[in-house]
Design a protein around this nucleic acid. Structure first.
Lengths: 229, 229
DNA sequence: CCACCATGTGAACCGCGATTCACCATGAGC
DNA sequence: GCTCATGGTGAATCGCGGTTCACATGGTGG
């Protein structure tokens, strides 16, 4: 960035860029910085640079850094929820709306997307953030949970799952997936546990069991069939 | 300096034993501050006040704040592990070493202790901490996991659980318990879900299911003990 | 009795990163 | 053309909290 005094027009063509879009550029820049360096690396300076604006410009559009990130997190979390909801719909599509599958599908999508964008997932799940932003996180965790609670209740009503405290199971599921992901997702994860695919399928197994669903196919304990370790 | 509520921090014996080195007082003070205000509230100033020493004294005994907390976390986490191990031993004690119970017992203790000291649990589980301290946390998470992995493998070998990826199940269990606790444990939790006892028993159910253990009672488990809190 | 070391003191220092502010462009309306 | 209003700039400011340092103090050995 050349620091010519008074040369405001040179960094980015001003007219080409809609005035309203600086705000959007900041939002996009913030998201992109978080995706790359996590919330910890998302200083005001870094965001400004990424957006191609000056430090202070941020404050023309947002009351504070935290406010900016509240919007970013809302946006990103919203996408996650949408994707999870879409996955649930998808299940009914192929003609056989297995109620257990409707519980597992969004979890699978959640995990899959997290693995695809680990730094972002880390920021969304566990990274230290502003108190204000943290509330958004909590808010969305609740949303995830509520989504699952509904699906679990449906499955129980349909007789596909044993009666249970759906709220607790939902929380446990979110936690199980979250924890199993936090390892691989956090900085410098060892690939000790194997590929992402094996992680995903293993996770699906644990989740299925946690809901109390009978093992695939026969409703009997798989006794003595091959063991893997 | 008057930032701390005077009464609370005084729990630490101030001048009982001079010889009981200042170092120990600092460690105790640090732990006590974390227990009360979390790591976030554990500034050097707060700790010094709680220990009844000056700001700089801390640096006569520890290279940095982080080093102090490495020791504190090691200590606290060690207690947790000890308690969990003891719980496992306890199971064998009454003559009936149910392998599934040996998996659930430490989880139960973990949850129970967390609920008893929520702020501390929060700090241990999820609160943002120094990188150095974070490594200790990771180290102990792994310890928890390894403990469970061993017990799970035993149970599988004994035929009490279906074959499974023990490492993944262990991570999921820790995560499930953690998440289910983080809600109640984090600032301003609503008691919406009921009492701690119901939480604990529900948690036990989910965990049992997640391991793939057959539902309570029906099968061949030695006795029909009606309830066990 | 004095030098000395260990330990304690707390005000000053410092780096970091969010926030502010005095000052410019530019476009719209008069 | 002149004047606001809007949006942009980036160096200065500020608050926070960890760390340092010049200065006690008190017990010990020479």
């Amino acid at each position: 960035m050349s620091a010519l005094p008074g040369g405001a027009a040179e960094a980015v063509p001003l007219r080409a860029v809609d005035v309203a879009s600086t705000r959007d550029r900041l939002l996009a820049a913030a998201r992109s910085v978080v995706e790359e360096h996590g919330y910890g690396g998302a200083s005001v300076a870094a965001i400004s640079v990424a957006a191609g604006v000056a430090n202070g410009t941020l404050y023309r559009h947002f009351g504070s850094k935290a406010e900016l990130f509240v919007e970013v997190f809302r946006d990103v979390c919203g996408r996650e929820v949408d994707a999870m909801r879409a996955a649930v719909e998808q299940v009914g599509q192929d003609g056989r709306p297995d109620p257990v599958e409707r519980v597992l599908a969004p979890l699978d999508v959640f995990a899959r997307r997290a693995l695809q964008n680990r730094t972002l997932a880390w920021a969304l799940l566990a990274e230290p953030v502003d108190a204000l932003v943290d509330e958004v996180r909590l808010e969305y965790r609740r949303t995830y949970r509520d989504l699952l609670v509904g699906l679990l209740a449906d499955a129980v009503d349909a007789g596909a799952l044993p009666p249970q405290d759906a709220g607790l199971t939902a929380a446990a599921l979110v936690g199980a997936v979250g924890e199993a992901l936090v390892g691989p997702v956090s900085p410098r994860a060892e690939p000790a546990s194997g590929t992402d695919d094996s992680l995903l399928s293993g996770l699906r197994d644990v989740c299925r069991r946690a809901t109390g669903a009978p093992p695939r196919g026969p409703d009997r304990l798989p006794q003595g069939d091959g063991d893997r370790r």
